[in-house]
């Protein structure tokens, strides 16, 4: 519009003089966002560390408690168990999701119309709330009223959520069902960025499809694999709502991940101090794994975000 007609050859010195004052004039615009963010996201993160050294029942006054919470939580076998379950969920969901996500990423990267249409369907589970998904699968897998009896299939009529091994399997399946499309989207972007010339060279050299996949596609996806894995692993620390609604941590404590343990102690048993200790552990585990994975990938920052 009019903008285009305006003279573009602005005298440089003048614009530089203008810029010195500009920062002051523009900085205030960041203040509202910064204030909300500091108060309700950064302060709580600091606060949880402070609260881990206090005794608080969630209603009354907060009393200092020294390192008592830390000592009691760290010596509690329940914590070790929750940590173990958390790592199990992390590991299995990574092992299941990664190969499928890569395959689907390669598939949807092909520029065919039907593939784009399929990709739209793949995305739908991401739109459902974890609560809705958990409620659905709980009904679907009910040994009396679910899929198995509905199809009169003995194989499908299992006590899916009542058996520790099966319950873990169900959690992993649902997580994959919901999140694989997200990761395949990341891989799709990355696959499209691989230079076509590499494939041409490979085919001139007579490499087959499988060979091409393993010696070109996969190595080229290295940084994307690190990114996707980081998101997967750190994300798996936060499967609270799904597990809360689906199994409540059960049967017994077989799917009780750290986040659930924290909720149980804090909002179930009104022990905010020990719950805060677990929250701090949650942050540390997440940070540790994210840093470790990035070191594994060599380059840490922007490059690994390619394709996101």
């Amino acid at each position: 519009m009019t903008i285009q007609a305006a003279p573009l050859a602005a005298p440089r010195p003048q614009s530089r003089g203008g810029q010195a004052g500009q920062h002051g004039r523009v900085a205030w615009m960041a203040v509202p966002a910064l204030a909300v963010f500091l108060l309700f996201a950064v302060l709580p993160l600091v606060g949880v560390l402070v609260l881990s050294f206090t005794r608080w029942d969630g209603l009354g006054a907060i009393h200092p408690a020294g390192i008592r919470n830390w000592r009691s939580v760290l010596s509690d076998p329940d914590l070790l168990h929750s940590l173990w379950v958390t790592f199990e969920v992390m590991f299995y969901s990574w092992v299941v999701q990664t190969p499928i996500a890569i395959l689907l990423g390669v598939f949807t990267a092909g520029r065919h119309r039907y593939r784009a249409v399929l990709a739209v369907f793949f995305f739908v589970p991401l739109l459902l709330s974890a609560a809705a998904i958990a409620v659905t699968f709980k009904a679907l897998l009910d040994p009396n009223f679910g899929l198995g009896p509905g199809l009169h299939s003995d194989l499908l009529t299992q006590n899916w959520l009542g058996n520790p091994v099966l319950a873990m399997g169900v959690v992993i399946f649902i997580v994959s069902w919901q999140f694989i499309p997200f990761h395949s989207l990341i891989y799709q972007g990355a696959v499209r960025q691989i230079p076509l010339s590499l494939y041409e060279a490979a085919s001139l050299d007579g490499a087959g499809r499988v060979r091409t996949f393993f010696s070109i596609t996969l190595p080229q996806l290295k940084h994307t694999i690190i990114t996707s894995s980081t998101l997967m692993v750190v994300g798996s620390l936060t499967f609270f709502d799904l597990i809360f609604v689906l199994t409540g941590g059960g049967p017994g404590d077989s799917t009780r991940v750290l986040a659930l343990d924290m909720y149980r102690r804090g909002f179930g048993a009104n022990q905010m101090g020990p719950a805060s200790v677990i929250a701090v552990i949650l942050v540390l585990v997440g940070l540790g794994i994210a840093l470790g994975l990035n070191r594994l990938g060599g380059r840490a920052d922007d490059s690994s975000l390619e394709g996101v």
């Binding site: 996201a41 950064v42 302060l43 709580p44 993160l45 606060g47 949880v48 609260l51 750190v234 620390l237 936060t238 609270f240 986040a259 924290m262 804090g266 905010m272 719950a275 805060s276 929250a279 701090v280 949650l282 942050v283 997440g286 940070l287 994210a290």
Partner: peptide
């Protein structure tokens, strides 16, 4: 990188 769960108590 701040997980909501970890901040929920404060």
């Amino acid at each position: 990188a701040i997980p909501l769960q970890a901040a929920i108590i404060p």
